[in-house]
Design a protein around this nucleic acid. Structure first.
Length: 165
DNA sequence: CATCAAAAACTCC
DNA sequence: GGAGTTTTTGATG
């Protein structure tokens, strides 16, 4: 989801691969899972100081979660989406590490108990996985559901937090 | 620009 | 296994 905004793309090297973090002038807008194609994230000559500091936080937070620990600080998140989607993402960020919620519970939390299907759609549109814990949302019968970056990642993240499915 | 149709990481009967 | 609810997105007039 790229909007007409100037963004910077920086790689984050972890033990699980190279993530790509996208920043706008206002904060972190998107986080991608490691991709097969290198895609040469060209680093601009003049990287704003703000972004470098955000990137440090992003990297630390990402590694914390991959290790199954709650991140101490997060960079400013700038979700690019509809009101509905932002509501969903905000509700998801309230899920404590190691816990899971069902799509139905998220739907209720935002005042649309029947909009479970739409909630699923919003989760799929989540541009910042891991930091916005969309992986902690399971189906009502504790099934894994789906995951934008691949189901393997969802399991990997849940395992790291001690959640068994 | 307004309207219609189809799809989506679901849930209930 | 099938129907129902909500939102988003792309096509159509």
């Amino acid at each position: 989801m790229i909007l007409a905004t100037v963004t910077f793309t920086l790689p984050i090297l972890t033990s699980d691969g190279k993530f790509l973090a996208h920043y706008s002038e206002q904060g972190l807008t998107e986080l991608d899972f490691p991709q097969a194609n290198p895609k040469a994230a060209k680093t601009p000559v003049a990287l704003p100081a703000d972004i470098r500091s955000w990137h440090r936080l992003t990297e630390a937070a990402l590694k914390s979660i991959l290790a199954g620990k709650e991140p101490a600080k997060l960079p400013p998140l700038v979700p690019l989406g509809t009101i509905f989607q932002k509501s969903v993402w905000t509700a998801m960020r309230a899920i404590p590490l190691g816990k899971t919620r069902s799509y139905g519970e998220i739907a209720e939390a935002i005042g649309r108990p029947k909009a479970v299907r739409a909630v699923g759609g919003a989760c799929g549109a989540n541009p910042i996985p891991v930091l916005v814990p969309c992986h902690r949302v399971l189906a009502a019968n504790k099934k894994i559901g789906g995951f934008g970056g691949g189901l393997a990642w969802k399991r990997r993240l849940l395992e790291a937090e001690g959640v068994h499915v």
